[in-house]
Amino acid sequence: MNATAFSVKTLAGKEIRDASRSRLFMIILVMLVALVIVSVVLGAFQVRVNVDSYNQSVALLQSIGKKNFPAAPSMNPLSASKSFTNYIGMLGALLGIVLGNATIRREREAGTMRLILTRQTSRSALVNGKTLGNLTLLLAISVLFYIFSAVAVPTIGHWSLTPDENLRLGFFCLIGFLYMTFFYLLSMMLAIVCESYEKALLLMVTIWLILAFILPQIGDTMDMDNQISGGFFAAMGMTRDQEKQVLSQFGFYEWLRNAFEELSPLKHFERAGFALLNVKPGFESNTAWELMGIKWWDIACLVVPNAILWFSATMIFKRREDRYL
C-alpha cells in the first residue's frame, strides 16, 4: 500500500470512529433504525396476512374436495420496504448533512486540520479519505437495511423472496445510498466553501428544504390527480388511457410540473425506488436489470451530481489553501 492509499485508509477509519462517538449521528441513526424496524415488521406482517388468507382459501377448497385452486395473488413482498423511501428521504438526507458538515468542522475547530496537512497527506487524500470513511458508513446503513428486509419478509411474512426480488431490493438500497451520498457531498462542499461552518449548515438545510420538500410538494400540488382523495380521474370514472388523453391537452402544464420534479433528487430516488419495490404499478413483469435500464435517467440524476460534487469539493479544497493554514 503506497503512502497516499495508507493516508486515505487511516483518515477513513478515523471518520468511522468519530461518527460512532457522535451523539447527533447516533440519535439520527437510532431514529432511522427504529422507523425501519417498525415499518418493515408491519409490512412483513401485511405480507403474512395475505399469504395466510390465500392458504386458508386453498384449505377451504381442499376441504370441500376441489382440486383446482386459484393461482396465488401477487403478494408484492417488496412493498414491505416501501416506507424506507420516506425515511431515507428525510432522515437519511439529514444523516448525510450532519456527516458532511462535521467532517470539516471538527478538524477546523480542534485545530487538527493544520496538523494533518503538515503530515505526509495531500489535500486530495484528506478529502477522499474523509469521503470514503463517511460513505462506508452510509453504505453500511443501506446494507443493514437490505439484510433486515431480506430476513424479515421470509421469517415474519412467511414468503420467500425470489433471486430477482432480492436483486431489486439490493438495487433499491444502492439507490438509497446514492441519495444519501448526494447530501453528504453537498454538505461537505458547503462546509469547505463557506467561511462559517454554522452558516454552511444553515445554507445546507435551506437547500435540503428546497430539494426534498418544496420542489416535490410543488410537483404534487400541480398533479391534478392528487387533488381529490382517491384521484381526480378515478372520481371521474376514467380509464388510464382516457386520463392520458385528457392530460395530453395540458402539455405545457405537465412539462412544468415535471421540470420541478426533475430538480429534486428525492423525486429521482422515489421514481426508481417505487418502480423497484413495485409500489408504482406497471413494472411487475420487469426484471431488476431491466428496471435499472428503464430508470437509467433517475439513476444518472443521482450518480452524475455526486461525481460532480466529489470532484468539485476536492478541487476547491486543494485550491483554497489560505483558508486552512
Partner: peptide, 14 residues
C-alpha cells in the same frame, strides 16, 4: 451553536 441547531432539526423532524 451547530449542535443546538441540529438538535432542533432532529426535534422538528421527529
Amino acid at each position: 451553536g451547530g449542535f443546538a441547531f441540529l438538535i432542533m432539526m432532529i426535534v422538528w423532524i421527529f
